[in-house]
């Protein structure tokens, strides 16, 4: 049984006098113990809102949440505030994108770290301080006892993110949600932080839900990848098959749009046309159809379902899945789409 099983999660924002916005339109995925699961997508696809809903961080007014998120037998979406507070920080933890705004600027780092130890592990005084120093040391912050007395602005960006990770892992959570943890950082620092996250997963068996827009980060870190578009998972697979043979035209297009460091120069990018604003309601058909190169009239008749068009375990929500010459086991016939194999297949 998976540690976290999200089933048909829907999140709708409603405001007085404006149209309801469905940010998440039925997202399902599982996270197993010790597994790194990626939620990938561009801005507005609903990836961050999903993580906030799981942590119970969305406001109760104006937001309607549907579906289930079973964590260890309990539905996270229907927990009482008090019960959620107990879980948050001890069993579930989260790392945010911007480390500076996630830390309290007027409180020393040490106080912020020991606060969690006090709340969830009942530690205080000298032992708590020792443990806090140990935690900072664990995430690679040099001279931790001095750093504990410092304020967030005295730390560099990478250091702050490390401090946040230290706080997140203070109670050895079983599930860690990281929302764009390295987006605000330089690449050399990003490499350090990703290495640290990898280490934590390997050593502690923590499950990691990684939310990012960067397919490069996903390629190096995630076991299972879910690609989101307009609030739905459009493709879900283990990372190697996903990158070798992206099956949904959106995932395929996304990989074709990224300039690669190892690609020969002069190879043109294949961008996806239009923008996220050119979409239709999932109820009317495929939300990606207006931007898709291989859409047919079939795409505009009802919501496409997640199926396994080519290989078992590789799910795609598309009626005209991208065909891959090399990896198209069994999927080579009866396909209207005829897109070339992507260069991602090494």
């Amino acid at each position: 049984m998976p540690l976290l099983s999200v089933d048909e999660l829907t999140i709708t924002f409603s405001g007085r006098g404006s149209r309801d916005v469905q940010a998440v339109a039925g997202v399902s995925f599982d996270v197993d113990q010790g597994q790194v699961v990626g939620l990938v997508g561009e801005s507005g696809c609903g990836k961050s809102v999903t993580s906030l809903a799981l942590m119970g961080l969305l406001p109760s007014r104006g937001v309607t949440i549907g579906g289930r998120a079973d964590y260890d037998g309990t539905d996270l979406l229907r927990l009482s505030t008090a019960r959620m507070r107990d879980l948050r920080g001890s069993q579930l933890a989260m790392i945010f994108q911007d480390p500076l705004s996630s830390l309290n600027p007027v409180v020393p780092i040490g106080v912020q770290v020991t606060e969690i130890l006090k709340r969830h592990r009942g530690m205080k005084g000298e032992p708590a301080r020792k443990e806090a120093a140990h935690l900072l040391d664990r995430v690679g912050i040099p001279d931790p006892t001095r750093r504990l007395k410092e304020y967030p602005h005295q730390l560099s960006g990478g250091m702050r993110q490390r401090a946040l990770i230290a706080m997140a892992v203070a109670c050895a959570p079983r599930l860690l949600i990281a929302d764009e943890p390295t987006t605000a950082l330089d690449v050399t620092i990003q490499a350090q932080i990703l290495e640290l996250l990898k280490e934590l997963v390997d050593e502690e068996g923590t499950a990691l839900l990684m939310i990012t827009h960067d397919l490069g980060v996903v390629a190096g870190l995630c076991d299972q990848v879910n690609v989101l578009y307009a609030g739905k998972v459009v493709e879900s697979a283990a990372r190697r098959p996903l990158f070798a043979a992206p099956t949904h035209p959106y995932a395929h297009g996304l990989l074709g749009s990224i300039p690669r460091l190892d690609a020969p120069r002069g190879e043109p990018l294949r961008p996806i046309r239009g923008s996220i604003n050119d979409r239709i309601d999932w109820a009317d058909g495929c939300a990606f159809a207006p931007r898709c190169d291989s859409y047919t009239m079939e795409c505009l008749t009802g919501t496409p379902q997640l199926t396994e068009p080519h290989t078992p375990g590789h799910l795609a929500r598309c009626v005209n899945p991208v065909k891959h010459e090399m990896h198209g086991d069994g999927g080579d016939h009866g396909n209207t789409a005829d897109l070339k194999k992507t260069e991602a297949g090494s």
Binding site: V187, V217, A219, G220, F243, D262
Partner: peptide, 21 residues
């Protein structure tokens, strides 16, 4: 340090991690 969107490349390459800021 630049991530490449290709697991085959990512798994095989050697990272030179810089220490410090």
């Amino acid at each position: 340090a630049v991530p490449v969107p290709d697991p085959v490349v990512e798994d095989g390459r050697e990272r030179i991690l810089l220490t410090g800021d």
